[in-house]
Amino acid sequence: MSADQRVYVIDDDEAVRDSMGMLLESADIDYSCFASADEFLDDHDETRRGCLVLDIRMPGMTGLELQKSLGATGSTLPIIFLTGHGDVPMAVEAMRQGAFDFLRKPVNENNFIERIQLALDQESGDWRQKTDREQLCERVASLTGREREVFKMVAEGIANKVIASELGISERTVEVHRAQVMKKLGARTLAQLVRIHIESE
């Protein structure tokens, strides 16, 4: 678990909320509790890290609605749903919408902690990936217009000679641009350059 990750517990039942908090505390996991989806959304921003534990059945905005709303903002926070007796159809819907998991109340605590850890790990990986991609995009953005043209054509496997004639420049100039692109993007081989191109799109 990374230091800035925490578990966001959203449940309208005070006792369930409180006991879940205590369990997370006993497992040395940071957490915050909210009594409703609205309360959670009130000071939500995209810098939040960690995962959500969400009661599927709540007055006001339901768990499923919160999931949709977060999905629409591009949030990748994993959501573990807590369901009661007879909520299976809703749980299936939640999974279809990309929930991380769902657990029946009363939950098996060890399983619960384990799932939380997995969700946090996944979010960690996602975050790293996301961060990498963001850095990559920044680097691509630092290319000049001509360099970007050369980058794109090289990555598509077009020969230097062809590129030179297409762009109306000398083959030598193409080679200089290509070396500059490799340097700026931190790629050492053509294969790396190709992967960067794919990821950046």
Binding site: S19, E25, S26, K105, E109
Partner: peptide, 25 residues
């Protein structure tokens, strides 16, 4: 029945978690 099961499940969930927390403490 569904509502009643829910109503009883809530405290049971909390009880179970408080108990597990106690063991961990």
């Amino acid at each position: 029945a569904a509502g009643i099961a829910h109503e009883i499940n809530q405290p049971l969930t909390a009880i179970s978690m408080y108990a597990q927390s106690s063991i961990r403490f």
